[in-house]
Nucleic acid binder design. Structure first.
Lengths: 332, 332
DNA sequence: AATTTTTATGCAACCGTATGCAGTCAACTC
DNA sequence: GAGTTGACTGCATACGGTTGCATAAAAATT
């Protein structure tokens, strides 16, 4: 910048003003602007955003923490967020936690040490206190993709998966006539695990159906774990005739395991997944699943955080529900 | 930091020295260290890495540019790189180009404006000149995941996909007895597209087999495009009996399309993919494919860049070949 | 006891940019 | 023609750290 100033025959501050003219109300003569721009061009100068961040206390970056880089759900969210960020000349820092608590903490620590202007996150273990503390220390707007009751004081975007699970299970029972329904979930310590399990339990109770303990299996979101869980279910003396699986990847594994055991889907056992990832229409039978709408989620999250960054919203927290929808295909 | 200094009763420089003791050879009395650490603890102070970067001309960040966030190949690479970076207390900036040239340029621009200590990239369009220029401007070590001849002056990690393609096609012909072999590729303007096509062409020529123009289809890496391409092949008057597909996602689409057209795989048409993504063992028939080894790729890339960052290597460029391997499953 | 060396600390400059404040100059006002 | 105004521009400082250099105190040497 000093070099540009020298070449243009003006002071360094003037160069700065020319280059950030949009954000500065001060006027500069047309003549000077031209001289500076010429010099910038000639030297191929680009401002150093790190320095700009330091001085301006504004980084033009936001961070997004996702739970699983392998889950296509998050790809759409990330892509959407990036597109919206790009429009505003923001860069996006992506962090992947693989659902591990330590990684979530590491992310918070990283944000504290290298501040950004806004944070989007899909927490799985972080307590409300930990998020509050992050906000308190950094004073950065945070938007979570999570059931709002877990984080009662930050903007939240969430899919109503409890209700969606409830409705889907009742549909299995009432429209499809299943009475023995199994469940492949994930740890109840994870918010979605807890909610979907609750939805399942309530639906079964309300339908007046008992669920043997064996019918409840637990996986870890992966295809492999879905296979294992399904194998366990099908090897029971009296296996379920339908299985609700907490995400599509595990459902894909479950269908695979069923085939291996010469068990027809959906004739012998119906399978329903959750997420509606692209692969759901690829496998055979095509997977019945509960669709989430990641693009909408990404949009809401991004807009919520940018509204706060730009001061458009600063009052009470906002909560956006993105409804889920059952998509019936061939696996039920 | 000033507050810490005040509380500890020392100067701000001393605090800095205590906190970056590892990198500074200067000695500090045990007593002072303790006072400072106590103050840090009491105030919950964390150094601002942005400021540190500015002064130190070292960001403790590396950036990685991948071509497709939906491709599981890159998930492994990213995970591996992140693990290695974490060991060294580096953060990783992830950028996704979706194979689009503008995004690659944008990435370079972002790196210029917000420098990092090292860059890993999977370029698809960037010219050698453009990469040279990036290095020239920023003076940052760059490691590419790409056939080295495209970027003759930077460290490169690459899978020998040309040879792997050649071998696989000859195997289809000689061991499996196919004589009509189709090809579903991607644009030859993309390095892997070009190489795999070359490998295919050479293998067919060397086997003395002609390839009708109709047998060459082009997709865009996606499942959808694989479906479309396969449909086109199977609707020919004389369809191929085997199809070499340039990546697994398209191969999955291709198998799907075949099933839709009541065409059995592998009896009526054999399919071979490339990448060996996890889904390859999930679909039925299980996909024969050429495995790449993304973990090894990530390791080599990360080590290459850190070796340069730490000054362990600074001479001539390094090139690492990660061989591919044919994995025969059920689709051939 | 005087001198040299070592150890520990502080002062001040610097990284690259943004901005409050003061100053210059031309154009206006009266 | 003196005073006022407004449009530009530069000086100096700040952002939050790191580090070269000087110096004071302590230890070692002569």
């Amino acid at each position: 910048m000093r070099d540009v100033a020298r070449l243009a025959g003006v002071s360094q501050s003037t160069v700065s003003r020319v280059l950030s003219r949009s954000t500065s109300p001060i006027q500069i003569s047309q003549d000077t602007v031209q001289k500076v721009l010429d010099a910038v061009d000639k030297l191929g100068y680009r401002p150093n955003l790190t320095a700009r961040s330091l001085r301006g206390q504004k980084t033009n970056m936001i961070a997004i923490m996702i739970a699983d880089i392998s889950n296509p759900m998050y790809h759409s969210i990330v892509r959407t967020v990036q597109a919206i960020a790009r429009e505003r000349d923001y860069d996006v820092l992506i962090a992947n936690t693989d659902h591990v608590y330590e990684n979530e903490l590491h992310f918070c620590e990283a944000i504290i040490r290298r501040p950004v202007d806004g944070v989007l996150m899909v927490p799985n273990h972080l307590s409300n206190d930990e998020i509050e503390q992050l906000i308190h220390i950094t004073d950065i707007p945070v938007v979570v993709l999570a059931w709002p009751s877990y984080y009662p004081r930050v903007d939240a975007v969430y899919g109503d998966d409890l209700k969606a699970t409830y409705d889907a299970v009742r549909w299995l029972v009432e429209s499809k006539g299943h009475r023995r329904v199994g469940f492949i979930g994930v740890s109840r310590t994870l918010p979605p695990g807890e909610r979907r399990r609750t939805g399942f339990d309530r639906a079964m109770t309300d339908a007046g159906l008992a669920v043997p303990p064996d019918y409840i299996q637990e996986g870890d979101f992966s295809i492999d774990s879905g296979q294992r869980a399904m194998r366990a279910l099908l090897q029971l003396a009296q296996p379920p005739t339908a299985v609700f699986v907490c995400n599509d990847l595990m459902a894909i594994g479950a269908i695979d395991a069923a085939k291996d055991l010469n068990c027809r889907v959906p004739e012998d056992v119906a399978v329903i997944g959750f997420d509606n990832i692209p692969e759901a229409t690829i496998i055979r039978p095509r997977l019945t699943t509960i669709a989430q709408y990641p693009v909408e989620m990404g949009q809401q999250m991004a807009h919520a955080v940018f509204d706060r960054i730009e001061g458009l919203s600063n009052g009470t927290r906002q909560v956006f529900e993105i409804p889920c929808r059952l998509i019936e295909r061939e696996s039920t």
